[in-house]
């Protein structure tokens, strides 16, 4: 993972100087701004200021602060005590729950993200067909995304009950369903089932991308004798890869930061089988008053997410197709 990250940074550096040189060339003579230019510049700062204040004050500031906090032992009441990298060492070598939470989060992300994409893609492709009641189905598929998570979680508590509807359904095909939320082995799959519930938002994005594909492509393909499968894999799929890529990145980040579902459904139980990194971080900070440790966990998670995001970007040039970029 570290090598991939380095490679990505290397790639970024390779692009860097060229851009920087170009900008410096612009700046060297530094043409005096006309009065209109000055007014425009003022308006620029005026209009960008809400974002700037928000970013510096509420995002960058706290982030930098949390780097410092992660190097201290701090209970939020008494002054922080600087402990160097102790919190990181503790997380990586002395806390089995951290590794368990990290593993659980990997497990969850590794299955829920591809599953969400596959389901989204499948639904979008179905909805893209000219079927009767298409609008109705689109609404129905997006609807679950609008239901507040708390309500969804409550419903899923019933759906996933040992003799609930899901297990009844499994019973019809002769499968004896597990005690989803009560069984350490099945609690993670249960959370993944719940995550598939939110596939509607990906579906909508993928669908709009599919609508944007020119008809001519399909017509040409048809004349060449391409069947539906061939058309999907040779036209639809490559055309929507940027959106799939976007959903992959956002899905990865979302999956690694899973919190509410765990908090509402299982509180990390049974026996930490569903404890994920963010709930762990939350407990450490607000339950046990270990802010330093929680911040260290937050940064470790940040590194993991950045690593996977970089990996996704790295592989993207092999499968993501941008039309504007002729190769």
């Amino acid at each position: 993972m570290a090598t991939d990250l380095g490679a990505v940074l290397g790639a970024a550096r390779a692009q860097g100087p060229r851009r920087a040189r170009g900008r410096r060339a612009d700046r060297l003579p530094r043409p005096k701004l006309s009065r209109r230019g000055r007014t425009e510049a003022r308006f620029f700062w005026l209009f960008v200021s809400p974002w700037l204040v928000g970013f510096l004050g509420f995002l960058l500031g706290p982030m930098i602060a949390s780097v410092y906090i992660s190097l201290t032992e701090w209970d939020s009441f008494t002054p922080p005590v600087f402990v160097g990298l102790d919190n990181y060492v503790q997380a990586l070598t002395g806390d089995p729950v951290f590794w368990q939470a990290l593993w659980n989060t990997f497990y969850y992300a590794a299955i829920s993200v591809p599953l969400g994409l596959a389901v989204g893609l499948w639904l979008a492709n179905l909805l893209n067909k000219r079927v009767r009641g298409r609008k109705f189905f689109r609404t129905m598929i997006y609807l679950p995304t609008l239901v507040p998570l708390v309500a969804t979680a409550m419903v899923f508590k019933m759906v996933l009950a040992p003799s609930g509807p899901l297990n009844d359904l499994l019973g019809l095909v002769g499968v004896e369903g597990p005690n989803w939320l009560l069984d350490p082995l099945w609690v993670k799959p249960a959370l993944i089932v719940l995550s598939a519930w939110g596939a509607g938002s990906a579906t909508v994005l993928l669908l709009s991308a599919m609508n944007g594909i020119p008809r001519e492509f399909y017509e040409a393909a048809e004349i060449d004798g391409a069947g539906p499968f061939r058309q999907f894999w040779s036209i639809t799929f490559p055309q929507i890869t940027p959106i799939i890529f976007f959903n992959l990145i956002m899905g990865l980040i979302g999956a690694f930061q899973i919190f509410s579902q765990v908090y509402i459904l299982t509180q990390g139980g049974p026996d930490n089988a569903s404890m994920m990194v963010v709930p762990l971080l939350f407990d450490q900070a607000f339950g046990f008053y270990h802010f330093g440790y929680a911040s260290a966990v937050a940064w470790l998670l940040f590194v993991v997410i950045i690593g996977f995001t970089a990996l996704a970007f790295r592989t993207s040039r092999r499968w993501v197709f941008y039309e504007t970029e002729v190769r």
Binding site: P62, S295, A298, T309
Partner: peptide, 18 residues
């Protein structure tokens, strides 16, 4: 890419403590 990365950082920022 920068847009996606920016969004990524913004989403990540949520887990930083304030």
């Amino acid at each position: 890419i920068r847009g996606v990365a920016g969004t990524a950082v913004a989403v990540l920022g949520m887990s930083a403590l304030a």
